[in-house]
Design a protein around this nucleic acid. Structure first.
Length: 512
RNA sequence: GGCGUUAUGGUGUAACUGGUUAACACGUCGCCCUCUCAAGGCGAAGAGUUCGGGUUCGAGCCCCGAUAACGCUACCA
């Protein structure tokens, strides 16, 4: 019976495994919170592991930002790259040797094979299948390579990947703790690449190996992973390991119900911090996503003298006491800024005047921020009293230029909005420093045949709400990437919406 | 296209093991307070539980079938 199991077998260990590919994501914070609550409720350990196996998407500063942002909303991990722990290293790029060894094991026992197709060949294969209305899958050709052929390819120095040999027949069933049994036919499971040709593992391999080696008991992750879970189960089997429990949490959504994305929502934790959301409000809001927190009963409300609205207001401590993983509702919750703002307002009002002032001084009016702004305008004002005249856009949240400001008479609204929309990915991709931004903006202007002046003017209008401002690039840098991009996004959303409203209103006006 | 998951007002969630007029919060609207705007107080509208069948005295809760949304379908995670 389970009572005989050694203690550490019973120990709950969970983990989050963010990838340092950009700004820390609200989804990471959400899953992190769930993991933290789960662990703390069961006297378990919460591990942070960095999944930096994709060299092409690696962003150097990202890891530190992840640490800072997660700590900011109040998540504390027991083990991780920065705090150490008995099962390290906790950065996958430092574990490549481990994956190599394990993949050799699979090669030896026939659960994996080498494949020599180039990415281009795979791409044409995929396109062909799609064109023929077939499911795009690897055709398994390399399974039939003879040992001699493999040797010859290797000797010729041909790069190769190592793929999982998914059984041709049968199916894999696993239990999702929130949904029950889920079954996948092997016919629908692809021969997943486990080791890339650059020697790094893919998520699937690294994840399973690390979860096992780090003795993870419960994998609490987002729903998007359900379809790859059979691959993971197969790997556990191939290694002869027992598998953890799986809890797939619902996916956070945009207003239109698609998976939350930066095109439609601010998703960077850095944004929320810089825009002046309080971490406790953020945490509270994430705790609301997907249910799990029992509503206080009528009796509890009466006996504790609470206002009914306080049912939605709770701290991490409350969550540890009351959060119930059996009560999670599986429909993907919309990440609704409106409610988050209401919550944040509630928390703001509960601060003492001193705390409130301190909160201002540590964020939107911090010395460092003000110093950066000051540097921008020293040569541009004549009295200190004019400080606010030129810097309001850096202190305000909602800045929307009127058409007179952002739309020169000779240009159409459509062209302008299209251009602004194209700026978004360009800004997103750019490093947030002068030369990179300058190059990015000039490049996109050239592409569209806009003069540098026109390009900069449009962005200036969007960022500052005015045609005159401190230098654009410096202003962008001071305001920050997350907030600047959000400002462009909001401008677009507003104008597109206005366009739509006008179009709808048109029938009322006599058409030409 | 294939596979998987999900489905309660605009949004987040409730509704004890099927049992009276589907509850709370956000948002919206109105009123009160008020020099304004918020906050606060009071009130209203808004879903018959995606749709169609079935079981049952009785179904949001159980069964069957549709539909839709979402996710995955990469040498990304």
């Amino acid at each position: 019976m389970t009572t005989e199991a050694p203690l550490d077998e019973a120990q709950v260990r969970v983990r989050i495994a963010p990838s340092p590919t950009g700004d820390p994501h609200v989804g990471t914070a959400y899953i992190g919170l769930m993991n933290l609550v789960f662990a703390r409720q069961r006297a378990g350990k919460f591990v942070l592991r960095i999944e930096d196996t994709d060299q092409t998407r690696f962003v150097a500063a990202s890891e530190q930002m992840i640490f800072r942002s997660l700590r900011w909303i109040g998540l504390a991990w027991d083990e991780g790259p920065d705090v150490g722990g008995p099962y390290g290293p906790y950065r996958q790029s430092e574990r490549t040797e481990i994956y190599r060894r394990h993949v050799d094991l699979l090669l030896a026992n026939g659960w994996a094979y080498r494949a020599f197709e180039t990415p281009e060949e795979l791409e044409t294969m995929r396109r062909g299948q799609l064109a023929a209305k077939l499911p795009p899958r690897y055709n398994g050709a390399a399974r039939h390579l003879t040992p001699e052929q493999v040797e010859a390819n290797l000797a010729a120095g041909k790069p190769c990947t190592i793929r999982l040999k998914v059984p041709a027949e049968g199916s894999t069933t696993f239990r999702d703790e929130l949904r029950g049994d889920i079954t996948f036919d092997h016919a629908n499971v692809d021969d997943q690449v486990l080791l890339k040709s650059d020697g790094y593992p893919t998520y699937h391999l690294a994840n399973v190996v690390d979860d096992h080696l780090m003795r993870i008991s419960d994998v609490i992750r987002a729903e998007e992973w359900i379809s790859s879970t059979p691959k993971h189960i197969l790997l556990y089997q191939a290694f002869g390991w027992s598998r953890p429990r799986f809890w797939h949490m619902p996916l956070l959504r945009n207003l239109d119900k698609s998976k939350i994305s930066k095109r439609k929502n601010p998703v960077s934790l850095v944004y929320y911090q810089q825009a002046g959301f309080l971490p406790q409000a953020m945490l509270n809001f994430l705790g609301l996503m997907g249910g799990g927190m029992p509503q206080p009963t009528e009796q509890q409300i009466v006996s504790s003298g609470l206002n009914t609205k306080e049912a939605d207001i709770f701290s991490l401590t409350d969550m540890l006491a009351r959060y119930d993983f059996n009560r999670i509702s599986l429909g993907g919750p919309v990440f609704d800024l409106t409610k988050l703002k209401w919550l944040n307002g509630e928390y703001l009002r509960r601060l003492s005047p001193e705390q409130f002032f301190a909160a201002l001084r540590s964020t939107v009016l911090s010395d460092t921020y003000l110093a950066e702004i000051a540097a921008l305008i020293q040569t541009r004002i004549e009295t200190l009293g004019q400080f606010g005249d030129m810097t309001g856009f850096l202190l305000a949240d909602n800045v929307l230029p009127t058409p007179e400001i952002f739309l020169p008479k000779k240009r159409s609204l459509e062209d302008t909005l299209t251009f602004a929309a194209d700026m978004l990915p360009a800004l997103e991709a750019s490093a947030w420093e002068h030369d990179a931004l300058d190059a990015a903006l000039r490049a996109i202007g050239q592409e569209k045949n806009w003069s540098v002046k026109e390009t900069f003017m449009l962005l200036r209008a969007i960022l500052t709400g005015s045609t005159q401002s401190p230098p654009l690039l410096e202003s962008l840098i001071v305001f920050g990437k997350a907030r600047s991009i959000d400002r462009v996004r909001r401008f677009l959303a507003f104008e597109l919406d206005r366009l739509k409203r006008n179009a709808n209103a048109k029938p009322l006006v006599t058409s030409p």
